[in-house]
């Protein structure tokens, strides 16, 4: 029973990672860049939620869309100002810029809200759910369900709408997609928009179980989600979901049964082992070299 409860915890943590990892992987698929500022979008989402709920007294069903909207606008703005001029630049220059944006968001939050962590009332309040004598956290179940809905929605969006198909086309071959009449700039903007909106939801869910938000709240889940995206094969949407869930389960099980402090080391160790066996991640495409 204890094991089952830990598994549910892992699933809910993993689904948060998966939501963040989706943003990393979609951006990577299309722009071939590691968007290190993505983790801090979570933090912005959490702060927005906190302001909307405690200062403006919005109900949760209004506060969550507001925070998604703010993050989506933020994501598109970041792309327009910092990444768009660097389309032709070396990947390393883009990486450093992304890190610069990450520092910028963190220090801006530090200036506005101060370094003390702010208590956030949870947007999701579901008590324990009893199944027989077995009780599981209601928040974990809600998190899991919400993530499943979002993932099904995203998969449908990518595979069945014109914009989604354009995203697939751009990630396959930017130049060819442009020749076929796909508006590449618009598609990239949509990618950042949807990735950041998902990150906002992840932020809301993360805060629901963590309770506090500070300027650096986003950085560790950001790195973990990045690891999850790579674990599943960066650039692959199902891979990000799988990687996120796996990572969450591994983390909460090793916290429960091995060591709380070493959980991070175990998570990163698993990543290294997986990459040694499958160098492009679990579901990543194998790239054949052409000479």
């Amino acid at each position: 029973m204890e094991f089952l409860a830990q598994l549910v915890n892992g699933l809910s943590l993993g689904s948060i990672y998966a939501l963040i990892a989706l943003g990393y992987t979609m951006v990577y698929g299309i722009c071939k860049m590691l968007n290190f500022a993505h983790g801090d979008v979570i933090m912005v989402g959490a702060y927005t939620l906190s302001i909307a709920m405690s200062t403006l007294h919005f109900p949760p069903y209004l506060a969550i869309p507001v925070s998604m909207l703010v993050c989506a606008v933020l994501g598109v703005t970041i792309e327009r100002i910092a990444y768009k001029p660097l389309r032709q630049a070396s990947p390393l220059a883009v990486l450093i810029t992304a890190i610069g944006v990450s520092y910028f968001l963190q220090s801006l939050a530090l200036l506005i809200f101060g370094s003390t962590q702010r208590k956030v009332e949870s947007a999701i309040n579901v008590g324990l759910i009893h199944i027989g004598d077995f009780a599981i956290s209601g928040n974990a179940v809600v998190t899991l369900l919400l993530t499943i809905v979002l993932m099904v929605g995203l998969t449908w969006f990518i595979n069945h709408t014109m914009t989604g198909k354009a995203m697939l086309a751009v990630s396959e071959d930017k130049g060819a997609a442009q020749l076929m009449g796909v508006n590449v700039n618009k598609t990239i903007a949509v990618t950042f928009l949807s990735g950041s909106a998902l990150a906002a939801v992840a932020g809301v869910l993360y805060i629901a179980s963590y309770g506090y938000v500070g300027p650096y709240t986003g950085s560790m889940p950001g790195i973990k989600a990045f690891v999850a995206a790579v674990l599943g094969g960066i650039g692959s949407v199902p891979g990000a979901m799988l990687g996120g869930i796996l990572l969450g389960i591994i983390e909460s099980l090793s916290k429960a049964y091995i060591s709380t402090q070493l959980a991070d080391a175990i998570v990163f160790g698993v990543l290294i082992v997986v990459l040694l066996v499958k160098p492009t991640g679990l579901l990543g495409k194998k790239v054949t070299e052409k000479v």
């Binding site: 990947p91 790195i223 290294i272 160098p279």
Partner: peptide, 22 residues
């Protein structure tokens, strides 16, 4: 030797974090 580009970057990142938590 087996990994390239971004995958290698993430392995070095993971290595740094493992060392730190140890």
């Amino acid at each position: 030797l087996r990994l390239r580009g971004d995958y290698l970057a993430i392995v070095t990142l993971a290595f740094g974090e493992i060392i730190r938590s140890i």
